[in-house]
Design a protein around this nucleic acid. Structure first.
Lengths: 327, 327
DNA sequence: TGCGGTTTTGAAAGCGTGTGCATTCATCGT
DNA sequence: ACGATGAATGCACACGCTTTCAAAACCGCA
C-alpha cells in the first residue's frame, strides 16, 4: 500500500540506490536518469520516508518549539514569527505546548525521542541539567525570553531593564508622582527583571513605587488588579504593567471607573503586541524586538546544529520605547 | 554517543528484545525484569528512538496541523485548543504554517513524508485530489471550518447560516434599517456562507443589505472599511462583520468618528474570540463552538486512524448568539 | 518424575532509506 | 590502440527498533 523506493526502482528499471541518489541533491547520477526516476516517482506518488532517512542521515529537520498557552496574544504572535522563521530555513516546527502548570522536562523528553535537531524553548522553566541532557542527546537548545542561570544553554532575551529605564524616563517626563506596578507571575524571569528594572530606574530619579500588585499576565487579571489600585486610597497617577495584555485590562478598568487615560492615570505595558496599537487602547509600551529575537535564536541554534561548540552565549536585544496615547 | 537499546541490553545483561518489550506496554515480560531494565535505561538516559520505532510500528503519533497566519486572534485561539486536544490524546502536533498566499499541497506533502498519522487542515484551500492522495498515503485528514465540495474528506464546521440567522433576528429586534456588511477574503468558504446566510435571513424578513464591502479578516481592514461606510452618504445603522477581528476594527472606526455604539450604529462580528469580551469592545457576536469543533474533528480523525473507513461525514455544529453591548 | 500447557526469552528477519566500496563504463591523453 | 582517469552504478551493510518464531523455562497436576 505504501509506495517505497523499491517500487520506484522496479518501475524505472534501476536499482534502489539510483532512486535514493535521484532524491539526494549533489549525488553522483546521470541527469537524464535522475529526471526519469523523478518522473516515475511522481507518477507513483512517491516521497522518501523522512523517518527512515533520518535513521541513517542523523538529521530529522525537526525543531521542537516549547511554548506556553497560545491564547496569550504575545505567545501566539511570537509563535507566528518563529514558525515562519523555522520553515524559511527548511526546518519544521514540532509544537510542544506546555500549560502553565506542567513541567517542561517530560514534554521535551518526548520531543527528543523524535530526534529533533534542536529546540527553541519559550515557555516553562528549564534548568541546567535539562539543557545538558538535551545537548548530550544531540539536540542543542536555545532559550528565549530569559537567561539560564548557570549558563547551560544559549539564550536570547530582550533587555528588560533597559526597557523599564525608558518607561521610567517617560514617567518622569510626564510628571507622574504616584506610580503603581502590576506584575506577572512571580516565578517568571521577565517579571523579576522588569520589576527590578523599574524600581532601579525609578530610584535613580529619587522615586519609588507607591504600590505593587500581581496578576498572571492575562488581560482579565490586569483588569482586576487595576480596579483594586484605582479604587483604593491614594490612587496612582500611573500604572506600569508587566506586559501589554495586563495593560489593556488596566485601561479597561480605568475607563469603567470613568477615569481619563492618560490625563487621570497613565498606563503602559511591555511587548508591543499587535493589539497594543488598536485604537481604543493606543497603548504606550516598550517594543519587544521579536523578529530580531527569533532571527538571533535561530542563527544560534543552526550554528550549534552545524557542530559549532563553545561556551553558551547570551544575546541581549535592545527594546525601544513606543509612545502612543496611554502615557 | 547516542545511547541505543543495545547499550541498555548490555548494561542489564539481557537481549535487545527484552529492552524493547520493557518499553512496550502489555508485552510479555517478567515484571521485575522490566523494572530492572527500565532502571538501567533511566540511568543511561535512554529513550526509544521514535523514528526507528515508527519504521516498523507504522504509527508515528504525529498529527499535521495546517494553519494560517497565527497572528490572527481566531487562528491562535483555535490552535491553542487544538494542540491541547491533540496532546491529551497522546499525539503530537506537527505545525504546518501556510501563509495566505502559499499552497497547502507542497506543505502537506512534506508533512506526509514525515509519516504523520493524520492531518487537521484549518487553513488554505484543499481539493478532493489532495484529500485522496493523503488518505491513500495512510494519513486521513479532517478539514475544519469548511466543507469540502465533492466530499473527499471528513469535515467539521460551524453552521454559519444559522449563526447569521440569529444575527438577523437581533438586527430586527433592535430595529435596524440600514444594514451594511464587511466581508472577509472573497475566496473563503466561511465568507461565502456567512454572506449568503445573512442576505437569506434578511430577505426572509423582507430586508436587504444597503451596502457590502470587503476586508481581509484583519482588524485594520475592518477599521478601513468601516470608516468608508460610516463617512459615506446614507450611513448604516448596523454593520455586520465577517469575523470578530474586523468588528473590533469597525468599533474603533465608529468611535473615532464620534459615533456611539450601539446607539448610532450597531456592530457585530462572528467567532466570539477572547478579545470580543474585552470591555472597550464588548462585542455582540456569534459564538463559534471551537471546543466542540476540535473534539469532533479529533474524534473523527482518530476513528479513521483506527481503521474505520466509510463515506466522509460532515459535521455541522450549532453556534450561539452572544449578546453584549455593541448591538 | 513426567507431561501438557503457559509464559519468557533470544535470535533473526524485517521496516525504508543512505552510503562506502568495488565494479563497470565511458572518456581522454599520448 | 591502450592504459589511466573519473563518473556512474549496484551490492550490501548500517541505522534503531518491533515482532515473529522457535526454543527454553516454568507451572500445576497426576
Amino acid at each position: 500500500m505504501r509506495v517505497t523506493a523499491d517500487d520506484v526502482a522496479a518501475r524505472a528499471g534501476v536499482s534502489r540506490s539510483a532512486v535514493s541518489r535521484a532524491f539526494t541533491k549533489g549525488a553522483s547520477i546521470q541527469p537524464d536518469k535522475r529526471a526519469h526516476i523523478l518522473a516515475m516517482a511522481d507518477e507513483l506518488g512517491y516521497r522518501p520516508n523522512l523517518m527512515a532517512r533520518s535513521l541513517t542521515g542523523g538529521a530529522t529537520g525537526l525543531i521542537a518549539v516549547v511554548v506556553g498557552s497560545l491564547s496569550s496574544p504575545y505567545e501566539s504572535w511570537f509563535l507566528d514569527i518563529l514558525s515562519q522563521g523555522i520553515r524559511s530555513r527548511g526546518l519544521w516546527p514540532l509544537l510542544v505546548p506546555v500549560s502553565p502548570g506542567q513541567e517542561v522536562e517530560p514534554a521535551l523528553d518526548h520531543a527528543l525521542a523524535y530526534q529533533v535537531d534542536g529546540a527553541v524553548i519559550a515557555a516553562g522553566s528549564v534548568n541546567r541539567k535539562l539543557a545538558e541532557r538535551s545537548t548530550a542527546n544531540g539536540a542543542p537548545i536555545v532559550v528565549v525570553g530569559r537567561v539560564l542561570d548557570g549558563g547551560g544553554a544559549d539564550s536570547v532575551c530582550c533587555d528588560n531593564r533597559a526597557g523599564m529605564a525608558m518607561i521610567a524616563e517617560r514617567l518622569v517626563a510626564t510628571n507622574r508622582r504616584r506610580i503603581a506596578w502590576i506584575g506577572g507571575r512571580a516565578d517568571t524571569f521577565s517579571n523579576v527583571e522588569r520589576f527590578d528594572g523599574l524600581t532601579a530606574a525609578l530610584s535613580a530619579h529619587g522615586m519609588s513605587l507607591t504600590e505593587a500588585r500581581r496578576g498572571d499576565y492575562t488581560t482579565d487579571s490586569g483588569m482586576v488588579q487595576a480596579l483594586a489600585l484605582l479604587t483604593g486610597r491614594d490612587r496612582p497617577d500611573a500604572i506600569v504593567c508587566g506586559n501589554d495584555a495586563m495593560a489593556i485590562g488596566a485601561i479597561s478598568a480605568a475607563r469603567r471607573l470613568g477615569l481619563r487615560v492618560p490625563e487621570d492615570v497613565g498606563i503602559c505595558g511591555f511587548d508591543d503586541i499587535p493589539a497594543a496599537a488598536w485604537e481604543p487602547f493606543s497603548l504606550t509600551t516598550v517594543a519587544n524586538p521579536v523578529t530580531e529575537t527569533v532571527k538571533a535564536a535561530l542563527d544560534l541554534l543552526t550554528r550549534r546544529i552545524a557542530g559549532e561548540n563553545g561556551a553558551p552565549s547570551t544575546i541581549r536585544l535592545p527594546p525601544a520605547l513606543c509612545i502612543r496615547q496611554s502615557l
